[in-house]
Design a protein around this nucleic acid. Structure first.
Length: 444
RNA sequence: GCGAUCGUAGCUCAGCUGGUUAGAGCAUCGGUUUGUGGUACCGAGGGUCGCGGGUUCAAGUCCCGUCGAUCGCCCCA
């Protein structure tokens, strides 16, 4: 290991295949969110600390011990975003986006939490995020869930794969429901106070709902015998949940009711959901969210119903199949250094015509050919004394060894053949040029 | 923040109960082949064994601390 500065704990340097995986996830998300007409938005990585403290809740672990908070040179308290939702709601208020409500928004990027790192869990990690702000229609809940379902399916890890992901769904009811249920739960847990784990005793004061999904065996019987929310649902809350599940069924999205699924953050109402896998150990939640009708108000805005979800990009990237290695259309290879400027002309023309082309910065012919092969080049454009004299380029098809001569003023067909090969490869239609009419039928 | 396991070359690992100059595969670079890559063969470089301290005649190997990774808890994507 070399000396010098080291990576900060819980951060990552993403490179090579890992970077390809990361990009594959964001690329699919960007395509799918367009299908659903979600607008891409960009918001700051840091905000006034109050944005998170007021919306997430001062007493939560996220705010009280996991935020990267610091004072800037002007003396203001700044926090690196631990999630997207609060910042999006702040923007919704401060930028006057209310006039466009309801808004369907999508974004992704780094978020920060000071936590103990584990596999798939970092201090700077990355999330996909989708929100619908400004409507209390259950159809919005459905819309958001169907988006998530299609995203996971297109990533190849959806519920339809065996051992894939399951959508767990619950309702937390409206404010009246939640209050009544919470009171009943507290009464129930108080009655069994002596048998609860230490963790759950602490939860009893801070966040009694969380006892429901405790993993401690001492808590399980008590949690399992706790009253269900269903008995406390108001007619409105019950109708809302029915409308959501009916919409999911109509869209063909598989779901299971998990009456023990709750949210840690205070602003959630009605729909709560998690897409869960058994493949990632304790980090099994891959995408989660819910309706947060109280959040915008807690930021000082008008009552604004909204719903959203977030998904950890690192966790999704670990689950998808290995993406295809990126391959080069054309590698330009000068026979010697004296032909490099001519080669540069060829390279520039190929790129201008849309070919994915590259040229090593230095090296002899053999070295550059080896490099072309390592880069997965479909074609190599060789230039040396003969080519310069004749204003031509020798095009070699790497898979077959066939060669053709192209005029330097007529490289269009070379660029097209290279791009065709790249595209056919990336669409999974064969990875050798034997399958591809690369060198033009008339030239064979 | 709590408990546990681990930390040897760029990567994956070997190194038995402490004992001569720390090994392998892959990768990298060079050669066989100075206008032609993949395969094969030959060769080379690369490690203060995470870091610091201790025990011992002797530490990669034992002990303590520290940093990091991993697993579980907490919390959460």
């Amino acid at each position: 290991m070399s000396k010098g500065p080291q990576r900060i704990r819980g951060t990552q340097d993403i490179w090579g295949e890992e970077a390809d995986r990361f990009h594959a996830v964001t690329a699919v998300f960007d395509r799918v969110r367009r299908l659903y007409a979600f607008q891409r938005v960009e918001i700051p990585v840091f905000e006034d600390t109050q944005v998170f403290a007021r919306s997430i809740g001062e007493t939560t672990d996220v705010v009280s011990k996991e935020m990267y908070t610091f004072e800037d040179k002007g003396g203001d308290s700044i926090t690196l975003r631990p999630e997207f939702t609060a910042g999006l709601c702040r923007a919704y208020l401060s930028e006057g986006w209310q006039q466009h409500a309801p808004l369907k928004l999508a974004t992704w990027g780094p978020v920060f939490r000071y936590e103990r790192p584990q596999k798939g869990r970092y201090r700077q990690f990355h999330q996909l995020d989708a929100e619908i702000i400004g409507t209390d229609a259950p159809a919005a809940d459905v819309e958001l869930l169907v988006l998530a379902d299609q995203l996971l399916n297109e990533l190849g890890i959806g519920a339809k794969e065996d051992g894939g992901i399951t959508l767990q769904l619950n309702t937390l009811g409206d404010a009246a429901t939640r209050e009544a249920w919470r009171a009943a739960l507290v009464a129930h847990f108080e009655a069994h106070r002596g048998d609860l784990s230490e963790d759950s005793l602490a939860r009893l004061d801070k966040n009694p709902l969380r006892i429901l999904d405790s993993k401690d065996p001492r808590d399980r019987p008590i949690a399992d015998s706790a009253p269900d929310i269903d008995a406390f649902l108001t007619a409105e809350a019950s109708d809302f949940f029915a409308a959501v599940t009916a919409g999911l069924d109509a869209a063909g999205v598989a779901w299971t009711r998990n009456a023990r699924l709750v949210r840690g953050l205070d602003y959630y109402r009605h729909t709560a959901f998690e897409f869960v896998t058994d493949r990632l150990g304790a980090q099994g939640t891959v995408l989660a969210g819910g309706r947060y009708d109280g959040l915008v108000e807690s930021l000082g805005g008008p009552h604004t119903p909204a719903i959203g979800w977030a998904a950890g990009i690192e966790r999704l990237a670990m689950m998808i199949e290995t993406p295809l290695k990126t391959r080069l259309g054309v590698a330009v290879v000068p026979v010697g250094a004296e032909y490099e400027s001519y080669a540069r002309t060829v390279l520039t023309r190929l790129r201008a015509k849309g070919a994915r082309a590259d040229m090593a910065f230095r090296g002899n012919l053999k070295r550059r050919m080896t490099r072309a092969d390592a880069d997965g080049a479909f074609l190599v454009a060789i230039v040396g004394g003969d080519e310069v004299a004749n204003r031509t380029v020798t095009i070699r098809e790497m898979a077959t060894g066939r060669q053709e001569v192209a005029a330097v003023d007529d490289l269009q067909w070379v660029a097209e053949a290279a791009q065709q090969a790249v595209e056919m490869y990336e669409e999974g239609m064969g990875d050798t040029l034997n399958d591809i009419p690369l060198l033009g039928d008339d030239k064979r």
